[in-house]
Design a protein around this nucleic acid. Structure first.
Lengths: 206, 206
DNA sequence: GTCTATACTACGATAGAC
DNA sequence: GTCTATCGTAGTATAGAC
C-alpha cells in the first residue's frame, strides 16, 4: 500500500477521534510509517489531508451504498407496498453499515462534521449524502401514496434515519440501556426486528 | 459569577467543541478571564475540569428533565393510552431541549463521550441517563400493554430516542435535507407533528 | 485565592540532503 | 518522493509573589 493511501487510512482514524485541530500530523505520519513532511508533499498540509479524508470516506460509503442506489427501481414506479419494502431494505443496509466495526472511524468523522461543520461537510454532502437522502425521501413519498406533502416526507425521512443512526452515534448508551456487552449477530437481529416493525407502522398507518 | 463557575461554563463550551485533548486550558482560562493556574487550583488540572464539566452538564439536564420525571405518575399505574401520551410529552420535552441553542454545547460534549467514552461517561450515565432511560422503557412497556418483552421495549425506546436525537446530532444534514436555514418555531412544529404521528403509529400498531 | 513567570513538551511547516 | 533537522508557536503544569 503506497504512502499516500496509508496516510489517508490513518488520517480518517485520527481525525475521526480527535478532530482537525486535535489530531497530530506527527502521530499520523508515524502511524503511517513515514515522515511528517510526506503530508505536506502529498496533500499540501494538515487541512489538505483532512479534505482528502472526507473524499475517501465518501468513496468508501458510495462503494457500499452505491450498488443499492444504482440497482434500485425509480421510486415513482413502485407501488406503496413496494416502497415500504425498499425503505426496509435501505434501513437494513444502512444498519449493517452502522453496526460494522469498520464504519466507526467514518462515523466519528461524519458526526464531528455534523456538529461542527467545516468545508469538508460540503464534500460529504455533495459526494453521497444528497443522493442518499433524495432517494429515501422519494421512497417515503411513494410509500405515503399522496398522504404527505414533500416537506412532511422529508422530516419523516430524517426521523427514520435517526432510528438507525442512534445505534452508531449513541452506541455507548444503547449498550447500557439494553444491558449488552456488544452488538453482535443476535442483537443486530433484534434491532432489525424492531426497525422493521417501526417502519411498517410509520409508513402504513392511516 | 465566581471564577470556578465561569470556568465550568467555558469548559463545557470548549470541551464540547474540541474534546478533552483538543481544548486548551490557555483558551479556557482566557475566556473565563482568569489565569491558567486557576484551573489547577479549583479542579486539579485539565482532566479534573473535564469531569467537573460532565457533572455540571448532568445538573443542567436534570434541572430541565427532573421536573417531568418527578411529577410523572408511576408508569405501571397508567393505561396504555396514557402511556402513549406520556411518551409523546417526553419526546416534546426532549425535542425542545435538543432544539434549544443552549443545548448545543452539552450535546457536543455528550456525543463525544458516546463515540469515544472516557471516565466522564460514567458520570453522565449515573447522573441522569440511566434514570431517563429507565423511565422511558417503562412507558414503552406500558404502552405496549404486554405485547413486548422487556428486551424489545428497550430497543424500541432507543429507536424512539433516535428520532429526536437526529435533529441535534445530524443537524447539518437535517437542515440540508429539508432546505431549512435554521430550525425555528415553524420547523419545530413540523417536527413535532411528525414525531407525534410516528410515536402513535409505533406504539399503537397491532 | 489569584496572579505572573517559567520549565518542559509537543505542535505544524519548511528547508535541504539524497 | 522521502527523509532529517530545525524554526517558531502553543500546549500543561508548577513554583512562588502577593
Amino acid at each position: 500500500m503506497p504512502i499516500d493511501e496509508r496516510l489517508l487510512d490513518v488520517a480518517i482514524e485520527q481525525f475521526g477521534r480527535q478532530g482537525l485541530e486535535g489530531a497530530s500530523t506527527r502521530v499520523i505520519a508515524a502511524a503511517a510509517r513515514t515522515a511528517m513532511s510526506s503530508i505536506t508533499y502529498h496533500y499540501g498540509g494538515k487541512e489538505g489531508l483532512y479534505l482528502a479524508a472526507a473524499r475517501r470516506i465518501s468513496e468508501l460509503i458510495t462503494a457500499r451504498m452505491g450498488a443499492r442506489l444504482a440497482q434500485a427501481a425509480e421510486p415513482d414506479a413502485l407501488s406503496p407496498q413496494q416502497a415500504v419494502a425498499q425503505v426496509t431494505a435501505f434501513a437494513d443496509g444502512f444498519l449493517a453499515m452502522m453496526l460494522d466495526p469498520e464504519s466507526a472511524p467514518w462515523a466519528r468523522f461524519i458526526v464531528r462534521e455534523q456538529m461542527e461543520p467545516t468545508p469538508a461537510f460540503e464534500v460529504l454532502w455533495g459526494q453521497f449524502m444528497q443522493a442518499v437522502s433524495d432517494y429515501l425521501v422519494k421512497l417515503v413519498l411513494r410509500a405515503g401514496d399522496g398522504r404527505w406533502k414533500l416537506a412532511e416526507a422529508r422530516v419523516r425521512a430524517v426521523a427514520l434515519i435517526g432510528q438507525v443512526l442512534v445505534f452508531r452515534v449513541s452506541r455507548a448508551t444503547a449498550l447500557r440501556v439494553n444491558g449488552w456487552e456488544a452488538i453482535g449477530a443476535p442483537e443486530a437481529a433484534e434491532i432489525r426486528r424492531v426497525l422493521h416493525a417501526h417502519i411498517r407502522a410509520i409508513l402504513t398507518a392511516s
